[in-house]
């Protein structure tokens, strides 16, 4: 209590944390992570594993239709076969690759488009920002599934048009969020300081803004991935998304939906169409769990004293 108040700047008490490499910090955070986050991470890793090693894991080929239609669950066909005699387990495994791959490519493209436009709008402001923002306002006011349906009816349902259409539509949401968080950073004094120093646009974007908007953007990436994944699944389910013979979970539900009526007689046949749907649901739940935890960590969403 009775310290002599000789003031020295270096000794001034500050909340000085120990410095650690990001690896150590990530591991410490992970150890503290709740069960749901762990579960989510494990599930995501499992899906990625299956997607990468699909050809080695699947007992049969993706479009291998050499068996009888609607065969029941058995040793040879763990989940039976579908309406034209393809092994459902194999198609589920290949489906992981196709469905996740396409959704991931779409989300990445959406972030590339939306993110870069958002940065441009936030930094340059003025009329560029106005034009971009108003255009996005209009695009966003058409429900994206409806818009996607309309565009697909014009360009046809190829994988490429699917990816481009969904990515463009989804980039509007990325733009909105990206612009909002970038705006929060742009008004910071350190950005003004960089401008006063005379730094160019490139430096300000790369060094001052981008590192500071990464956390919300990463979380948004998870959420957008879920949304894109569900949209593509819905489109495929409606028959206008990923086209046969490519195995994909949405269309698998559609193809085998009629089996559900037999649930009273053979429960296993009845739940067969639910398997791909469950595969979709479990992955999105897992991603949501991880994003939830990540958001809580980075935005400090908790009761402040």
């Amino acid at each position: 209590m009775s310290e002599s108040e000789g003031y020295s700047a270096a000794a001034e008490v500050g909340a000085v944390r120990m410095r650690r490499s990001w690896r150590e910090r990530a591991w410490i955070e992970l150890k503290k992570a709740p069960f749901t986050a762990w579960l989510g991470l494990v599930i995501i890793l499992a899906y990625v594993f299956v997607a990468i090693f699909a050809p080695w894991l699947a007992p049969y080929g993706e479009a291998d239709a050499q068996f009888g239609a609607y065969e029941p669950w058995s040793g040879a066909h763990v989940f039976g076969t579908d309406q034209i005699g393809r092994d459902i387990l194999s198609r589920l495994i290949y489906g992981a690759r196709n469905t996740i791959g396409i959704a991931l490519a779409t989300t990445l493209l959406a972030f590339l488009i939306g993110g870069s436009l958002a940065l441009v709008a936030a930094i340059s402001r003025g009329w560029i920002d106005q034009v971009l923002s108003r255009a996005v306002d209009v695009l966003i006011s058409i429900p994206s599934l409806i818009f996607a349906l309309m565009l697909l009816s014009i360009y046809g349902s190829t994988t490429l048009s699917l990816i481009v259409i969904i990515a463009v539509l989804d980039s509007t949401r990325v733009f909105r969020l990206g612009r909002a968080v970038a705006m929060n950073v742009v008004v910071m004094d350190y950005v003004e300081a960089a401008r006063l120093r005379g730094e160019g646009l490139g430096w300000i974007m790369r060094r001052e803004i981008l590192p500071n908007i990464m956390p919300p953007l990463v979380a948004e990436f998870g959420l957008r991935f879920c949304f894109v994944f569900l949209t593509i699944a819905a489109l495929s389910f409606l028959g206008v998304g990923i086209q046969p013979p490519t195995a994909d979970w949405g269309s698998m539900v559609r193809e085998n939906a009629s089996l559900i009526q037999f649930a009273q007689f053979d429960l296993r046949a009845g739940i067969t169409p639910l398997l791909p749907a469950a595969a979709i649901a479990i992955l999105t739940i897992a991603v949501n769990f991880v994003v939830d935890w990540f958001l809580m960590k980075t935005s400090g969403l908790r009761d402040e004293p």
Binding site: L230, A234, I260, Q264, G270, I271, L274, A277, A281
Partner: peptide
């Protein structure tokens, strides 16, 4: 609710059909 929003609509629909329509 976090789980429910993660599910595709058709999954929810078919589960309901399975239990309340079929079984």
């Amino acid at each position: 609710t976090l789980s429910t929003i993660s599910m595709p609509e058709f999954f929810v629909a078919y589960i309901l059909i399975l239990f309340l329509g079929s079984l």
